[in-house]
Amino acid sequence: MIVQVALATGFVLILIGIYGALTQRNLLRMIVAFTVANSGVNLVIVAVGYLPGRTAPILDATVPAAEAAARIIDPVPQALVLTAIVIGLGVTALMLAFAYKLYEKRRSLDIARFSELKW
């Protein structure tokens, strides 16, 4: 049940983010929509790794190493998402730096003013 709810939410977040990025006209708002979509993708990947009734892949007194295989969830998606979040911050910083330079050039954040590559 938890998995299905989380998966559905992740998909809805991706859709909201894509719709926002496609329809907004302000560059900064597009970047906000991108971060929302990014969060949705991360949620979907983590939800796929979750197995009902199991616990986190950290061994300690409550989860001894001997019975680990029967009690922990899949650690690989978590490792993937962990690095994806960090890279996501780097990508956001890069997009913001470019938005700053574009504003410096044109004095506007409206995407309709940037028409050099329009066809």
């Binding site: 983590v46 790794g49 979750y50 986190a56 969830i73 978590q78 998402v81 962990l82 979040i85």
Partner: peptide
Amino acid sequence: VFLILAAPDVAMTE
């Protein structure tokens, strides 16, 4: 939500 999905590492990063 990440913590509920048993991913404390990811929850801390987020």
